[in-house]
């Protein structure tokens, strides 16, 4: 017998499967939360930021499109500005030169993540959506590490990211597939 709500059932099955997939794909977003949790200098804002990052990643993958494709590379690239400043902070800040080293670490990490996302965007069909989503997620992930050091470090990381990612994404070859 044909169920009268078959279309609705099929839609529910589809949405549930997308949500499952989203949870799975957003799992790397739990790593920043773990890092923040284990950090001795963690703040409540950082913890909230990490939880919100996971929720946003799930939402983006569930919604689909180029933004969903950007989630995994962005979370991977974001680990650099998340971890490098924290390592530098713990290694050098006891012996002076803290500000200089931390700004340098955030800038370098932002540039590295920018190169990664810029190159990835260049091979995408909807590179603008991919690049913007990727950029937001990288800066968000990186901010969880750099924001603990100061506003200047955070700004330096974001600026370095944009300065490297944008030209690489724009200069990439045109992708014909639609």
């Amino acid at each position: 017998m044909i169920h009268p709500d078959l279309r609705q059932q099929a839609r529910t099955a589809y949405e549930h499967s997308r949500l499952r997939l989203a949870g799975l794909h957003a799992l790397p977003a739990l790593f920043p939360l773990l890092v923040i949790w284990l950090s001795p200098h963690r703040t409540t804002a950082q913890l909230f930021g990490a939880v919100a990052l996971f929720a946003v990643a799930v939402g983006l993958v569930w919604r689909g499109g180029a933004a969903a494709r950007a989630v995994r590379p962005a979370l991977s690239a974001g680990l650099l500005p998340l971890l490098l400043p924290l390592i530098v902070f713990q290694s050098f800040c006891g012996s002076g030169n803290c500000t200089t080293n931390c700004i340098a670490a955030c800038t370098l990490a932002g540039a590295g993540a920018g190169a990664w996302i810029g190159l990835q965007s260049a091979h995408q069909r909807q590179r603008l959506e991919f690049g913007i989503t990727g950029g937001i997620l990288v800066v968000w992930t990186g901010a969880l590490g750099c924001s603990a050091l100061g506003a200047v470090e955070l700004f330096a990381m974001a600026l370095a990211f944009a300065a490297v990612a944008a030209p690489l994404a724009i200069a990439g070859p045109a992708v014909r597939r639609t």
């Binding site: 017998m1 044909i2 099955a13 589809y14 549930h16 499967s17 997308r18 997939l21």
Partner: peptide, 21 residues
């Protein structure tokens, strides 16, 4: 026909369940 409709219905739900993969 009735059993065939049941099978088709199950298959349809399975397709949409696995469409993301």
């Amino acid at each position: 026909p009735q059993e065939a409709d049941d099978a088709a219905q199950q298959a349809l739900l399975k397709v949409f369940e696995r469409a993301s993969e």
